[in-house]
Amino acid sequence: MDRNQLKKWFQNPVKMAHKYSLHVVYFCTGCGIIEIPPSITARWDAERFGIIPVATPRQASLFIIAGYVSLKTLRSIIRTYEQMPEPKFTVSLGSCPINGGMYYDSYNTIKHLEKYIPVDGMIAGCMPRPEAIFVGVTHLWTLIDKDMADGYKRYRSNYSAYRANQEKILGKLEWPPLFPIHGEE
């Protein structure tokens, strides 16, 4: 542990603990997942950064959305995201969740992921190399430090709008709303 950070540990231990033990949901949402196994195994070793995959979303705090998101996957992504306990952070890999990438004219992939769930950071590239993933994670640390990784708070406050967007694309969702939905202002 870095000795200079000792002060931070005393001032805000909870935040530091969130920062250095990011538990990742094990969900292969797209082709970006091909660089996740190298990053969590011996050569690149993501555990240096406190990143470790866990079995269920109930134990996780980081959701890596790896690559393009098709409509069928979007449904399970929303369910998985809503199951995660707060605080939770989302990072997307690759160009496709940013603006559709090379699937800009595909009828079955969504183009802007941040319209459906909040995204804290986006790592560009196709595929992002393992180094890029680690740079993205260290940026996420900075954001957590400055209270800027507030996607889950935005999800709570704008839940009606998010849910409306999700239902617009996927049709009526079969599970009940996570937060109360306000009527039309």
């Binding site: 098709s70 699937y103 004219d105 595909s106 079955n108």
Partner: peptide, 23 residues
């Protein structure tokens, strides 16, 4: 299946022969 369907075969009909390589 279908969680990763992107409709490649349809998209390839809109791109030239050489542009299909990245697809």
């Amino acid at each position: 299946p279908g969680y990763l369907h992107r409709g490649f075969e349809k998209l390839m009909e809109k791109r030239s022969w050489i542009k299909n390589f990245p697809m």
